[in-house]
Design a protein around this nucleic acid. Structure first.
Lengths: 202, 202
DNA sequence: ATACTTGCTGACTCTTTAGTCAGTAAGGGG
DNA sequence: CCCCTTACTGACTAAAGAGTCAGCAAGTAT
């Protein structure tokens, strides 16, 4: 009796909806996910969802942002490390970070970016400005610091930090396409880092 | 006058349609491409398209197959090379092959696979059986041959040929997402091959 | 010429789903 | 307790697009 049919929780709704949307997008991708399905998962009506997000695309962007923002902190925290050797930083926090990515929400975001990039250039800009370019710049800086203090040689890797990150990308794509055929992504990434270090070491 | 409104060209239609579909999918992806758009590009009516392809999905599969099949030959030709050293084969035909992939139709196929894989497990199986597993197996064989004749050491790369191919994947994804921000994919791939060879050389 | 087969057309149907809005009820202030 | 604001609902609309089909006409055989 008198149990209210719903509660007004203006504060919590946006986050609950983006979380539900993230879960749905992770399972089925953006296009294949129905707005009603997101509303159902979030425990609200479709109408309410449209009060908080003007269109399905806006919801999409909000989801991307909600995943990317906290990761940014993790990334910067990883890199403003103590002043140990560049190699120690790479073998420590950087390697850990890389190994965590394939199983993380970032992996979902990358899948969404690959599928939706051509239709959402502004989102690509956002991702570039906030994640890709920063991450690559930080990596380049780390490598150059290694060169400066005599640990590393000057190599093409300095201008191509993408090379550093390639096996992470490979792992993510493998997970998307060949989800069931297992791949030891940790070993893949570790071996690659070993190899790179051997290559660039002075 | 009396120019016939159309010609009957049963033989050529399927290929013309798959070619038009490939071009359309390359630009907009599978889901965003309208069947009518494909028909228009192929210069036929939607009804005719449905005479040759039962559904949009069948058309999709036909497109994938039409790109993959000729590439299979190229791949096998690359690998049943003369009996030079493993390193020479890697630095020659294998490197060439890898450098060509990011700008080729294969790149489009991979984008389509990433976007559509979750909805098309049978297509993933097809791609796995005909491309991925064969390519990786051939690579593994090449590496083991190098080990057998004393060129290479036993390393983790033998069980993880994906590592070999990682920068190609990176280049493809880069091209999809950051199409405009240029990346020297040739140099990326060359450097990576250099690095791998240095790592595995006995 | 005529009859016949079949490659081909394009207007139609039917389903799906993003987005709307008139109305309902939760909850707080007087 | 009543009233007023507004968070919230869910049935509805409108658009889009996959797939169909009755009929048309290109080519062929007689």
């Amino acid at each position: 009796m008198a149990r209210p049919r719903y509660r007004r929780r203006k504060e919590d709704r946006p986050q609950e909806i983006t979380e539900a949307a993230f879960a749905a997008f992770a399972e089925k991708g953006f296009t294949a996910t129905r707005v009603e399905e997101v509303a159902r998962r979030a425990g609200v009506s479709k109408g309410l969802l449209y009060l908080y997000f003007k269109t399905k695309e806006e919801l999409f962007k909000a989801v991307i942002r909600s995943v990317v923002t906290p990761r940014l902190d993790a990334l910067t925290r990883t890199l403003d490390s103590p002043d140990s050797s560049a190699e120690a930083i790479i073998r420590g926090p950087v390697l850990d970070f890389m190994k965590r990515v394939p199983g993380s929400p970032v992996s979902v975001v990358i899948r969404l970016m690959i599928s939706e990039a051509p239709k959402h250039p502004d989102l690509v800009d956002y991702y570039w400005d906030n994640v890709a370019s920063r991450g690559l710049a930080a990596l380049r800086q780390l490598l150059e610091r290694g060169v400066a203090n005599g640990e590393f040689r000057e190599t093409a890797v300095n201008e191509l930090p993408q090379l550093f990150v390639a096996p992470v990308m490979m792992s993510i794509v493998w997970g998307i396409v060949f989800a069931d055929r297992s791949l030891d992504t940790d070993k893949l990434i570790e071996t690659h880092v070993d190899m790179i270090l051997a290559y660039i070491r002075a």
